[in-house]
Design a protein around this nucleic acid. Structure first.
Lengths: 211, 211
DNA sequence: CAAATTTACTGAACAGTGTTTATTTTGTCA
DNA sequence: TGACAAAATAAACACTGTTCAGTAAATTTG
């Protein structure tokens, strides 16, 4: 009987539609403008219906976070393919910051918001794509350490240092802390330049390598 | 006539009481648990009264942010007093992270929340204490550069790099991203160790100096 | 001292928010 | 077609920030 299969499929489709509309609303109104009731309006169902497909808003934001990681991976896979470990590491950093600043709502969901983490803790699942990304960073750091012969560096510690720096840059820039501290940074291209300079600085200080 | 002066004083006192109770509520219920209506209850006035003393919630959070900077300065002034520029820089970084992690609600308000920035933009005032703190960091970087004779370093760029890193560390740690990526970091003392190691790494990579 | 005026305060409403539950509508199977 | 299960919803609950008309208190003036 294909009837229950069709039902399952329809259930899945509505679930996807909810996430799709949520995505559209966030793009239009920002993360704060995303509400259950707005989603309900857009999919033309009552708000209560959404709770038949997701246990709460946290789960919706968790699923959106996962979609955000897909977006990010897609925008970074050129960097992942670079042969030279140092250049790869640098490009990953550059693209990371670029993605974060240009897709702030997504980034905020993935790396700042407590909502997806609440869901993760409640359901005791892993922060899957985040861990994958970090482990990839660790591996690239390892490659870079081998490549430069600087065996005194510890790949996990180095990865954390790099991650902290780019994460800090994205946040400072997107929450308007950079532009009020460095007045010249009001125009976005100068801010890009600042971020770029900082990235170059890290690599210069760690690997003695210019880009 | 001292009558209008007394009135002015009373007005100021109620304003301070509002901020005091707001502080207490945030300490108890976190930043998300802080609402105008809760403040109103605690000071035993109606919610509308609060709008006679502050134009909106953003202004309350802006004033609280300023109090947060006072707290932070107080907890860091031992570091500020250190003679040796490198050691001073390191201690500033260590205390910065310590304050951020231990007073996350305050830190979040000062360095992440859009609310105080909304007020700053609306009233076209400066991000006063934040700028002061950053300029002090720049100056200390300058001192450290002179002290180590590494003239190729640019103090403003270096300050931004250091700030980004510690800001990133505080955020990753406080938003539960660190502990899910590095499972050993669940216990807070190991997390402290990780943060400390990262800090040491920065200084090693930039100044070739061990701590 | 009483009346007029200014200042301080509040009740109630508006337009939202996430979430739950009892009820109704819809679809499937015998 | 009637019974049963599944899906959807209306309505409520307990909140949120904010505004405004109207009330109460304090002060100044006649």
């Amino acid at each position: 009987m294909g009837i229950s299969e069709r039902k399952e499929r329809e259930k899945q489709e509505l679930k996807e539609l909810i996430l799709l509309k949520a995505k559209e609303i966030m793009a239009r109104d920002g993360q704060d403008g995303l509400s259950i009731r707005k989603i309900a309006n857009e999919i033309e169902y009552s708000p209560a219906t959404i709770y038949l497909y997701f246990q709460d808003k946290d789960e919706i934001l968790y699923q959106m976070m996962n979609k955000g990681f897909s977006l990010m991976s897609a925008s970074m896979d050129e960097s992942f393919a670079i042969e030279d470990p140092l250049k790869r590491l640098y490009e990953i950093g550059r693209c990371y910051v670029e993605f974060g600043v240009q897709n702030w709502d997504w980034y905020d969901l993935m790396f700042n918001s407590p909502s997806p983490m609440n869901h993760i803790e409640r359901c005791s699942v892993e922060w899957g794509p985040g861990i994958t990304l970090f482990e990839y960073l660790v591996k690239t750091c390892e490659d870079a350490i081998v490549h430069t012969g600087r065996k005194e560096l510890e790949s996990r510690a180095l990865a954390l240092q790099l991650w902290s720096t780019v994460h800090g840059l994205v946040n400072l820039s997107s929450t308007q802390r950079l532009c009020v501290v460095i007045p010249e940074a009001h125009e976005s291209n100068i801010q890009n330049q600042l971020v770029d300079q900082t990235l170059k600085n890290i690599f210069l200080s760690i690997f003695n390598t210019k880009f």
